[in-house]
Design a protein around this nucleic acid. Sequence first.
DNA 1: ACCGCACCCTGAGCGC
DNA 2: TGCGCTCAGGGTGCGG
Length: 291
Amino acid sequence: VPELPEVEVTRRRIAPHLVGRRIRRVRTTRPSYFFVTPPARLRRALAGRTATDLERHGKYLLAPLDDGTRLVLHLGMTGQLFSAAATSPRLLSATARASLAPEEQPSFRPDAHTHLRFEFEDGGPEVYFRDTRKFGKVLWLPDGKAHPRLARLGTDALEVSGALLFTATRGRRVAIKSLLLDQSILAGVGNIYADEALFLAGVRPTRSAARVTRRECDAIARGLKRVLARSIETGGSSISDYVAPDGRDGEYQSERRVYARRGEPCFECATPIARVVVGARSSHYCPRCQR
DNA sequence: ACCGCACCCTGAGCGC
DNA sequence: TGCGCTCAGGGTGCGG
């Protein structure tokens, strides 16, 4: 599940394969939910262009192009952005892996889920955007045009502060967990890091946002910065589909304190970790450490 | 304005 | 072995 750290790691590792290389052509799959900009228009817009940079805002990647337009990518839940030079069996589903002969398993060939294939003028390795569930998004922004999806984004979660959270939570009756996932307040926080930060702050995910104190807002902000920074350092969490552009797995999943640890003992007090559904998302917490 | 929930999609894991 | 069911989840949009 790519959240801010996974998107940031992706950005850093894919940038050398993308930025400064002139695109010869882009191949796409059929029109679908994935293509906010229709694939035919996208192919026309990208041919001959060069990305001059690769930026991140929340979970979005933005590539300014040399003609002043912009390419925007969102990895959704199962999106993978990687270079053809990458080798990892994790780039395929378990079923797809099983159908390959052992000697073929490390290599990747574009499949039905590979929705974007960037081919470059230099003839070097292609760049692929693969997304099995198609919750990911690709769109192209003509010169200067803002897009509502981006305009709605709140402060990037790496810049969170207790003051920001305190202001945002006043008068809000929603669960604090739901508020942390609201991308118009904080951009980049997803299920894993919300649960982890709430554990560090000792706040139960179900608590009404308005009932979180100023001191606790500070603690949540500190917790978020800590888990996000640490996850970026370790290459992100490779819990389900996430794999970095060079094919490497992240390591942060081994540092989880609560996420997906239902029934396992809390590292602080040995109480079994509980799981509840908050805003249609599974939430994990320690019933004793978090109030 | 706020909030809960259905929906988009596919693969894994389960029960029978 | 194999089918069919349920679950997972980010973000959007709608209805109350």
